[in-house]
Write a protein that binds this DNA or RNA. Structure first.
Length: 106
DNA sequence: TGTATGACCCCAA
DNA sequence: GTTGGGGCCATAC
């Protein structure tokens, strides 16, 4: 089975997420584009949702196009994500980050 | 085969 | 600033 060039979509999403530098954040659309999904940003969310909780993937560096966390502020994942981001030096204010400062520029 | 859903994105009113 | 509609991709039923 060769997947060199046609890896499963979910693995390409993993690769794209893993490529996000430390201390930076990327949007779902950005990941989708890097994964070759074009505008399949929604699928990125589907893949990340299926990630095991013991994953090493920096999924917390993925936010929506407005730089905001796509969770409700009272959910646990939201708290985990904002915590991990702050641990990387990314300041999260009111559930959103400054894309101009922390946005991943390719 | 067709419809519905999703941790989204973009634009118009 | 908020709301609504359409679009994209892949999956599940």
């Amino acid at each position: 089975m060769i997947h060199s060039q046609s890896l499963p979509a979910n693995e390409r999403v993993w690769q794209a997420v893993a490529c996000i530098p430390f201390g930076k954040v990327a949007s779902y659309g950005q990941i989708a584009q890097l994964a070759g999904l074009g505008r399949g940003a929604r699928y990125v969310g589907t893949v990340l949702k299926q990630l095991p909780k013991d994953t090493t993937l920096p999924w917390h560096r993925v936010v929506n196009a407005k730089g905001k966390v796509s969770f409700t502020a009272d959910s646990d994942v939201y708290k985990r994500q904002t915590l991990k981001l702050s641990e990387e030096g990314i300041l999260v204010s009111n559930g959103k980050v400054d894309l101009k400062r922390y946005g991943w520029n390719v």
